[in-house]
């Protein structure tokens, strides 16, 4: 898989890159502790500023409060740079406080403002708990991604899941499988492929992205013998987009497009439904997957897991996916700067 050019190991005489912003997410979840663990691992090598209430961080975390993200690269060698955002209540592991919900949301909005002002290179978001935000603050968005799109004034974004070996974009996401055949219109598919194509160019530095598109049915319908969506929906969209110059393969049989040799032929796979995208990436890289939002005016990634209330506060949470999300955001920001 061809990736983005890596930033140079030495910054040299170039101006110091801006730090990333990392939001605290739900403080009753594992967000604060994995942020502290990520800083321990990355230090000044990949500076980020954590936005949240320092009282929610694990006891003993070396913290340095900053007043502006630009101070983060300087302090990150010795402490976790924190942009303080006061919360009304402490964090009880596994039990979200209704009183904290509004601040969880406010932290996200604050991070978006910093990204829009150009004060940070991109946004990495800690996991939130949708139900806690609904009940505590009347949060009405289906999820993080939709809220970010609304803040940015963007109509449509797509979710990409990426690991070192595979990038996947589901065309439909959190809906019952039985609704997928109805929701999978030419329009939805066309927008998904276009946003994927634009995102690979802008955020991953791939000038001519190669996109593989899965079929919906077994063996991609086998010429209509096992379903007609490939013939009636997918193929016409691919033909129209190929006529515009996009490099697309498909509709491909989903079961044979994800092994290593097949993956060498594309930069991202557009899938028809959630599990068609999630099964291969979890099978290939269970812990290292990163959630990327394409189509926003700023870079945004997040770890590919939730608040993990069951293990919060025990020091057992694995920061691998968050660290991968920070690396991915840095590379994406670099690709944008280079463009």
């Amino acid at each position: 898989m061809s990736g983005a050019p890596r930033p140079p190991a030495q910054a040299g005489s170039a101006p110091a890159a801006k730090p990333l912003a990392l939001t605290c997410g739900e403080p009753a979840g594992i967000g604060p502790e994995i942020a502290a663990r990520a800083w321990e691992t990355l230090g000044a090598r990949l500076p980020f500023v954590w936005i949240g209430d320092p009282a929610h961080l694990p006891r003993g975390t070396p913290v340095r409060e900053v007043t502006h993200p630009s101070e983060a690269p300087r302090v990150a060698a010795s402490a976790l740079p924190v942009l303080r955002h006061a919360f009304p209540a402490p964090a009880a592991p596994g039990r979200p406080e209704a009183g904290n919900a509004a601040e969880v949301i406010a932290v996200i909005a604050r991070a978006v403002r910093l990204a829009q002002e150009g004060a940070v290179a991109g946004l990495v978001t800690g996991p939130i708990h949708k139900k806690a935000l609904q009940e505590g603050a009347g949060f009405s968005y289906p999820g993080h991604t939709e809220y970010l799109a609304a803040l940015a004034g963007v109509d449509r974004v797509v979710m990409m899941l990426a690991c070192e070996h595979l990038r996947v974009v589901p065309a439909t996401i959190h809906v019952p499988l039985a609704e997928v055949p109805h929701l999978l219109t030419r329009d939805v598919l066309m927008q998904t492929i276009r946003l994927t194509h634009a995102g690979l160019r802008r955020d991953f530095g791939i000038s001519v992205p190669r996109i593989a598109v899965a079929g919906l049915n077994p063996h991609a319908g086998e010429g209509g013998a096992m379903g007609r969506e490939e013939i009636e929906t997918i193929t016409p969209v691919l033909e129209a987009l190929r006529a515009e110059g996009l490099v697309l393969s498909g509709p491909l049989s989903a079961d044979t497009m994800f092994h290593a040799a097949a993956r060498a032929h594309y930069d991202a796979a557009v899938c028809m439904y959630h599990d068609q995208a999630l099964i291969p990436i979890k099978t290939i890289d269970f812990a290292g997957g990163v959630n990327v939002t394409l189509g926003l005016p700023f870079v945004r990634t997040s770890p590919d897991h939730g608040t993990a209330f069951d293990i919060a506060g025990q020091g057992r949470a694995d920061p691998t996916s968050l660290i991968a999300a920070l690396h991915m955001a840095e590379r994406m920001a670099h690709a944008r700067r280079a463009a």
Binding site: P218, A254, D255, F258, D275, I279, P280, T283, I284
Partner: peptide
């Protein structure tokens, strides 16, 4: 429950 649900993971895993 259905073909690709099983075949994607197993083929990635080398069930060929």
């Amino acid at each position: 429950m259905y073909h690709d649900q099983g075949q994607i993971a197993t083929k990635v895993r080398g069930f060929m």
